[in-house]
Computed example of a mutant assay.
Amino acid sequence: MWRAVASNALTLLIVFLFLGGGLILWGKRSYETTGPLEQAICVRVEPGSNMTKISRKLETDGAISNGTIFRLGADYSDKSDQLKAGSFLVPEGASMRDIVDILTRGGASTCGTEIVYRIGVTRSEFVLRELDPATNRYVEQAAYDPAGDEAPEAFAEPLSRADTRHRIALAEGVTSWQVVEGLKQVSVLTGDVVELPAEGTLAPHSYEVRSGDTRGSVIGRMAAEQDAILEEAWKNRVDGLPLASKEEALILASIIEKETGVPEERRQVASVFVNRLKQGMRLQTDPAVIYGITKGQGVLGRGLRQSELRRETPWNTYVIAGLPPTPIANPGRASIEAALNPAETDYVFFVADGSGGHAFAETLAEHNANVAKWRRIEAEQDNQ
């Protein structure tokens, strides 16, 4: 009898072990396999949250099939107490293991709300936008000009949240003065800029910042980025350029930046100025004259007067020979590369062509014909 009982007990133990092992394998497979999420979502983890709360939310959102397995998997991988506050993008089909990794790895938020501080040439704009997980594109919620407008109420709550991302975007061609004035308006930054950065030394780019970063540290990042861009472009420059140093390359690049907004024209514009420098011709570039008037502090807002074109300043390239003494703006990578690798042309003139671009010429006669054509276009536009 006891032998039968022992045999039955052993059989039951084997069955339980078999079932337990199967259950563990099923749980492991469920934890690691493709999840039920059909469309990417943004998961916000509040400060002080825990895996229990998150698992319930994920079940409600249809991101996981079993909250218990999700929590057990997090426990087993020693990640239950590693949740990071923020907003995180969870892609479609993400497994429970993937989601645990996304929510515990740390770093900046990957979705949710973002405030972009755009510092432009003619105006600045602060934009509140939200990532649409379905398209992985940001949708604008509100915007305003910090120079003259009050911040919309929509900005208040995101500015108070730790998981809101902040990004500073510098337009190509902004001056250092414009950058500093723009940074003064960014309320999440701290500290003062002690000294105006040298013109041309800040890279137009998009910079993610955190609340509490100093303005000085952001300026430092911009300067380091421009140094790296200029160094690389200088190493890859073509032979025979009439440029004695990286600083002269930066000056030329800034003029190219201000002369054209058409990306395809940059190397042609660069060729005009390089050819003029080689031939000893004056550069005769209006943006440099304007910089001599404004010193980069704002926009002139009108056309140049004849008296200003004749007045001698260090930046009046109608009067001085060669390059002006400093850059006239902060050029972007493409203009720096164009200055150091211009198109091979014989052009020494260019003028607006009425389409947003320019007409280029090798001779004064061709240039005069292009100018006459532009004058007719201007007159037609004025009469409309």
Rank of each mutant, 00 (worst) to 15 (best):
Y76V: 07
N136M: 14
E46P: 02
S109E: 11
Y291C: 00
I219K: 03
A244F: 09
G62A: 01
V127S: 00
S124E: 03
W234Y: 07
K235L: 15
E208P: 07
R118V: 07
K235Y: 13
S211C: 13
G322C: 12
T135E: 14
L159N: 10
V262D: 11
S211P: 04
K246Q: 14
A270T: 03
S77H: 01
P314Y: 03
T190I: 06
T52A: 09
L250Q: 15
D149T: 03
T60C: 02
V218F: 04
S49H: 07
E225M: 06
G106C: 06
I336L: 08
T294F: 02
W2F: 11
L72I: 04
G35L: 05
R44H: 12
N341L: 03
R129S: 04
L323S: 05
V299T: 05
T285S: 03
V179A: 06
H367I: 00
N370S: 12
P242K: 14
I69N: 01
S7H: 10
L13D: 08
T190S: 04
A244I: 12
V174K: 01
S87F: 10
R3D: 08
G67L: 11
R276V: 09
I377E: 13
Q141R: 15
G93S: 13
G240Y: 05
V194A: 15
A372T: 13
A171G: 04
G292K: 00
V209E: 00
A169P: 04
V348G: 08
G86V: 08
L241I: 11
F349Q: 04
V15R: 03
K278Q: 11
Y291M: 10
V174H: 01
I290S: 01
V5N: 10
R282I: 00
D98K: 07
I336T: 01
I328G: 01
L131C: 07
A339N: 06
V238W: 06
L13N: 02
D145R: 10
G22Y: 09
H166R: 02
A372E: 15
L243S: 06
L19A: 14
R123P: 02
E153K: 14
